[in-house]
Design a protein around this nucleic acid. Structure first.
Length: 853
RNA sequence: GCCGACGUGGCGAAAUGGCAGACGCAACGGACUUAAAAUCCGUUUUCGCGAAAGCGGAGUGUGGGUUCGAGUCCCACCGUCGGCACCA
C-alpha cells in the first residue's frame, strides 16, 4: 500500500541517474603524485572507513552510519580545496566465508566474490563518493602478496632494546637469531577448538566456547607462529599520547597492554642452589612474604617437589590442565592449591617460606611465580586463611593498628621491615629495590599484561605463510616467490585434528626433496593491518606502496597518517592495536613515514532496533537498508542516519524519523520544483534570479553557512541538519524566491544529500544561467559576519537569578546604559521593592542580573 | 570486584557557566478537499489561578557544595550501558 503511494519527490528517478553519472565520469577518482591530473597545490585529506567483512547477509544499517559520516567529510573537504582520498575495500578472508563454503559445498572464493558484488551494489546505491578505482580485497593474490611480504619483514627483524626499534635481523649479534625474531615459532598452550578445527585467539573465545558456532574450546600445547608485539608494549602506550582518539579507547588500549612497574626478586631454595624469581609491584612488602606460589605449569615444580607430595602435586596439575580458563577464574570462587614440600629463603630476612602451587597464579604473566604477602593482597589473604598460612602485617594503614592493617592494599607506611621501617610506600619501594639490586638479589622491572600475538590458524581461507621447513628448521621463502597462493583444494574442511587443511594438498606441501611448506594460514587480522597503506597505491606490483604515494597520503605534514578514521569500538584492542604494531615495525624499518597510522579516530555508536534492543534476527528488529532506500530514497536514508543523534552515541532506529527527514528533503525539492496541472514536476514559478535576498533571509542563510561548516568539522551532523531545516523553513514561505540563496543551501546540503542537490542544481542551471562549476566542485560558501550582527539585541533581566523582564537595546549600548535601562523596568522595580541592590552583573549582549536583598 | 561513559518532555534530541527543551517524531486543533492522503498554519515540560490574553510556582536521576547565576564545575549516592576480570 505505502509503496504505491506517490513519492514526495522522484528520488527513484534521479538517484540512479546521478550514481551512473558519477561512475561514468569517475567523479571521485583522485590522482596520485606523478599522475596526469594531479594537483600538487592542494593539501591532502585521507578519510578512511573500517572496511567491511563481506558477509552473506549484506549491509546492515550500522555500516552506512560511519560511511555516511566519512562521505560527508570527504565531500566537504573536496569543496574546501583538498585532494581527498576516500577508498573502500573488502576484508574478505575469514572463518565465516569458509564455514559457509563448507555448508554449501561452494568454494569460498566463489561465495566471497558474490558477497563482494552484493556489498558493492548496496554501497553504490547509497551514493558514497568512493574512489572505486582503488578498491582492494585482502583475499586477492595481488594484495596478500604484500601481506606475506610484510610477514617476511617481521620474520627477518628483531627488536633491539638499545635502539628501542625494530631492526633487520642482520644487526643482531647474538647466538640464536630465531630467539629474537618478531615472527617466531613457539610451543605454548593455546585455545584449540575441535568443533571448528582451529586454534583461536583469546578474543575469539567467550565463556569457554568459540564465538563462532559455540563449540567447546580446550587448552592444549601446540606449535604456533607468534608475533612479538610485547616488545612494543611501551611504545604502544607512549605513542597514544599524540593521537586524537577518544580517551576511552586510549584507556582500553592502555589497560589491555597493562603496564606494571615493580621488581623481580630472587628467592634462593632452602635445599640446593636453584632459585625462583618472582615479579612484584610491591617490593616494599617483602618482609611480609610468608610463602610462595608457583603456577602449576611452572617448570621448576618438577625439580623441587618432595617425594611425599608428588601424588598430590601431579593430581592437581592434571586437574588444572583440564580446566578451561573460565573454570580457572570465574567459577573458582574458592582458592585451591597444593604444597610442594619445598622451601625457599626470603632474601631480606632469611626466613624459610613454604612453596605452594595454585592455579590463581598464571604461568603467562610475570615469571609464573609470586611471593605471597597475605597481609596486603586480597588473593593471598584468602589463600592463607584457607590453608592456615602465616599473615604478617608490614604496611600500616593511616590511623590503624598493625592488626587492623591486615587486608590493606594501598600505600601506607612500612612496619616490621627493618630496612625500610617508617618509610611511606613509594620511598620504601625505591629503597628496597636499590638494596636488592646492590646485592644481586633482584632488580627493578616492568611487566605487561599484553601477550605475544598468536598468529597462525588451521584454516584454508587465509594467507599461507611464506615459510619452508627443512630438517626441523624454518626458513623464509624468497620474496620473488610471492604471492604464495593456497592450493586449489576441493576438500578444504578442517581435518578434525590440529593438522591444517593445507596438509591435504600433498604436492603443494612438498617444496623440494628436503623442504616442505608451512601448513598454517594467517588470521583474518593480517590483511586489515595494512590495508590503509595499499589504498594509497593499490595496483603497484613492485612495492606494497610507492614511496611517493605513501609520503603524500600518509605523510603530508605533521602529524600525518590517516586524517580521520571512523569505525566501531569493537576493534579497540584488536585491529587498532595490531595495525599500530605493524605500522611501527614498518616505520622502524624505513618503509613508512609516520610512527602512527591513524591520527584521528572516531567511533560511531551502535544503532539499536526500534524496540531499543540490539538488532538481531532472533528479535526480528533488524532494519534492512535496501528496504529503507526503496521506500524513502538514499538521500533520506543518509540524512536520517546522521540526524538520529550524535555520531558516537548509541541510538535506536525509528521509521517515522526517516519519514521526518524525507519530508524535509521534499520541502527542499519544492523550493525549486512545483507540480503543474498534469502532475509533472517543473521549475517553480516563484523562483527569481533578479530578486535580492532580504536582510532577514541573509541572516538565516549566513548563520546556516557558519553552523553547517563548524558542525561538519566537529562531526555534529545532527545539529548541522537542524540548522538546514531552519533555513529551509525560512525559505519556504518566501516568494519571489531568490535563486542565489537556494544555490547556497544546495551547496551546504550537498555532502549530506548529494543526489537531490545535484538534481536541483542542474535544474537551476537549465532554468537560469548555468554555473561554470559542477556542484561537487563548488567552493564551500563563505559566511559574512556582517549579516549576523543585529542592530538591536534582546537582553534578559534577572533579579536574584530569576527572569523578570526582557529589554531591547542597541548593539552599541554601554554596560552603564544597559544597567540603567534594566533598573528602570517596572517589573524589576516591583521585584526589588523594599530591598537593597547589592550587586549588578551585566553580560554584554546577553543579560543583566540584579542581586538584591 | 576494578575501570570508563552516560542519566534532560510521550520519543530521538539541543543548549562557549547566562532565557532549559532548538530541530525532528508522535499527539491534538485548524486551513485546503465531496472525502481521504499529501501539503500548509498553529498548540504541546509540568502544576496552580484565569473565560482568555496572561500571571505565578516547580523543573535536566537523588542529596549536598562552589557561583550573582549550574543541565553544564566539585563531592557523595542511585540507575543504565560498555570494557576488564585472580595480571601479583
Amino acid at each position: 500500500m505505502s509503496s504505491d503511494r506517490r513519492k514526495p519527490y522522484p528520488f527513484d528517478l534521479f538517484e540512479p541517474k546521478w550514481q551512473a553519472h558519477w561512475d561514468a565520469h569517475e567523479t571521485f577518482r583522485v590522482r596520485n603524485p606523478g599522475e596526469p591530473g594531479f594537483d600538487a597545490s592542494r593539501p591532502k585529506f585521507y578519510v578512511l572507513d573500517m572496511f567491511p567483512y563481506p558477509s552473506g547477509a549484506g549491509l546492515h544499517v550500522g555500516h552506512p552510519e560511519g560511511y555516511t559520516a566519512t562521505d560527508i567529510i570527504g565531500r566537504y573537504k573536496r569543496m574546501n580545496g583538498f585532494n581527498v582520498l576516500h577508498p573502500m575495500g573488502w576484508d574478505s578472508f575469514g572463518l565465516p566465508a569458509e564455514q559457509y563454503a563448507i555448508k554449501t559445498g561452494q568454494h569460498p572464493a566463489v561465495t566471497t566474490a558474490q558477497n563482494v558484488a552484493k556489498f558493492k551494489t548496496q554501497l553504490k546505491t547509497i551514493g558514497f563518493a568512493y574512489d572505486w578505482s582503488r578498491e582492494i580485497a585482502t583475499s586477492d593474490p595481488d594484495y596478500y602478496r604484500w601481506t606475506q611480504w610484510i610477514f617476511l619483514k617481521l620474520y627477518n627483524s628483531w627488536f633491539n632494546p638499545a635502539s628501542n626499534k625494530a631492526e633487520p635481523i642482520e644487526t643482531y649479534s647474538g647466538e640464536n637469531p630465531d630467539s629474537v625474531r618478531l615472527a617466531y615459532v613457539s610451543e605454548a598452550p593455546v585455545n584449540w577448538c575441535p568443533g571448528l578445527g582451529t586454534v583461536l585467539a583469546n578474543e575469539e573465545v567467550i565463556d569457554g566456547k568459540s564465538e563462532v558456532g559455540g563449540y567447546p574450546v580446550e587448552r592444549r600445547p601446540m606449535r604456533q607462529w607468534m608475533l612479538r608485539i610485547t616488545a612494543f608494549g611501551q611504545r604502544l602506550i607512549d605513542e597514544l599520547d599524540g593521537l586524537t582518539w577518544p580517551e576511552s579507547i586510549k584507556l582500553l588500549q592502555r589497560n589491555w597492554i597493562g603496564r606494571s612497574e615493580g621488581a623481580e626478586v630472587h628467592f634462593q631454595l632452602a635445599e640446593g642452589d636453584r632459585r625462583i624469581t618472582v615479579f612484584t609491584t610491591r617490593p616494599d612488602t617483602l618482609f611480609g612474604a610468608t610463602y610462595m606460589v608457583l603456577a602449576p605449569e611452572h617448570k621448576i615444580v618438577d625439580e623441587i617437589t618432595v617425594e611425599d607430595q608428588w601424588p598430590a602435586v601431579r593430581e592437581y596439575r592434571e586437574r588444572t590442565a583440564r580446566k578451561s580458563d573460565l573454570e580457572r577464574t570465574e567459577l573458582a570462587k574458592e582458592k585451591t592449591g597444593v604444597f610442594t614440600g619445598a622451601y625457599a629463603i626470603n632474601p631480606v630476612n632469611g626466613e624459610r617460606v613454604p612453596i605452594w602451587i595454585a592455579d590463581y597464579v598464571l604461568q603467562g604473566y610475570g615469571t609464573g611465580a609470586i611471593m605471597a604477602v597475605p597481609a596486603h593482597d586480597e588473593r593471598d589473604l584468602e589463600f592463607a586463611q584457607k590453608f592456615k598460612l602465616p599473615v604478617k602485617p608490614v604496611v600500616l594503614a593511616p590511623g590503624k593498628s598493625e592488626e587492623e592493617s591486615i587486608g590493606f592494599c594501598d600505600n601506607g607506611v612500612a612496619v616490621n621491615s627493618p630496612l625500610i621501617d617508617g618509610l611511606p610506600t613509594p620511598e620504601a619501594k625505591s629503597k628496597i629495590s636499590t638494596w636488592l639490586e646492590e646485592r644481586g638479589l633482584g632488580k627493578r622491572s616492568i611487566n605487561f599484561k599484553l601477550r605475544d600475538w598468536l598468529f597462525s590458524r588451521q584454516r584454508y581461507w587465509g594467507e599461507p605463510f611464506p615459510i619452508l621447513w627443512e630438517g626441523g628448521r624454518h626458513r623464509a621463502l624468497s620474496e620473488s616467490e610471492l604471492p604464495l597462493t593456497p592450493p586449489p583444494l576441493d576438500d578444504f574442511k578442517p581435518t578434525g585434528t590440529p593438522e591444517p587443511p593445507l596438509s591435504k594438498a600433498v604436492d603443494w606441501v612438498r617444496y623440494s626433496e628436503t623442504a616442505t611448506r608451512e601448513l598454517n594460514t594467517m588470521p583474518q587480522w593480517a590483511g586489515s593491518c595494512w590495508y590503509y597503506l595499499r589504498y594509497c597505491d593499490p595496483t603497484n606490483s613492485d612495492r606494497f606502496v610507492s614511496k611517493a604515494a605513501e609520503e603524500y597520503w600518509m605523510g603530508g605534514g605533521q602529524p600525518g597518517g590517516v586524517d580521520l578514521y571512523v569505525g566501531g569500538t569493537e576493534h579497540a584492542v584488536l585491529h587498532l592495536l595490531y595495525a599500530r604494531f605493524w605500522h611501527k615495525v614498518l616505520f622502524d624499518l624505513g618503509y613508512v613515514s609516520t610512527p602512527e597510522p591513524f591520527q584521528r579516530l572516531v567511533n560511531q555508536g551502535i544503532i539499536l532496533g526500534e524496540d531499543g534492543q540490539k538488532m538481531s534476527k532472533s528479535r526480528g528488529n533488524v532494519v534492512n537498508p535496501d528496504d529503507v532506500i526503496s521506500q524513502y530514497g538514499a538521500d533520506a536514508f543518509r540524512l536520517y542516519e546522521m540526524f538520529m543523534g550524535p555520531l558516537e552515541q548509541m541510538k535506536p532506529w525509528s521509521m517515522t524519523g526517516v519519514e521526518g527527514v524525507s519530508r524535509f528533503l521534499a520541502r527542499v525539492w519544492r523550493l525549486v520544483m512545483e507540480e503543474n496541472q498534469a502532475g509533472e514536476w517543473v521549475p517553480s514559478q516563484a523562483l527569481s534570479d533578479s530578486t535580492p535576498v532580504d536582510k532577514a533571509l541573509l541572516k538565516v542563510l549566513h548563520a546556516t553557512i557558519k553552523k553547517v561548516g563548524e558542525d561538519i568539522e566537529s562531526l555534529s551532523f545532527n545539529t548541522a541538519i537542524s540548522q538546514m531545516m531552519i533555513c529551509t523553513n525560512a525559505l519556504t514561505g518566501v516568494s519571489p524566491r531568490p535563486v542565489s540563496a537556494i544555490r547556497t543551501l544546495l551547496q551546504l546540503l550537498n555532502p549530506f544529500a548529494p543526489h537531490l542537490t545535484a538534481e536541483l542544481w542542474e535544474t537551476l542551471d537549465r532554468r537560469f544561467a548555468a554555473s561554470p562549476v559542477s556542484l561537487v566542485d563548488q567552493p564551500w560558501p563563505k559566511f559574512n559576519p556582517a549579516f549576523l550582527v543585529e542592530d538591536e539585541i534582546e537582553i534578559v533581566i534577572q533579579v536574584n537569578g530569576k527572569n523578570r523582564d526582557k529589554l531591547v537595546v542597541s548593539k552599541d549600548a554601554s554596560k552603564e546604559e544597559v544597567e540603567a535601562a534594566a533598573k528602570d523596568s517596572a517589573k524589576v522595580q516591583e521585584s526589588i521593592d523594599g530591598k537593597t541592590v547589592r550587586k549588578v552583573i551585566v553580560v554584554p549582549g546577553k543579560l543583566v542580573n540584579i542581586v538584591a536583598a
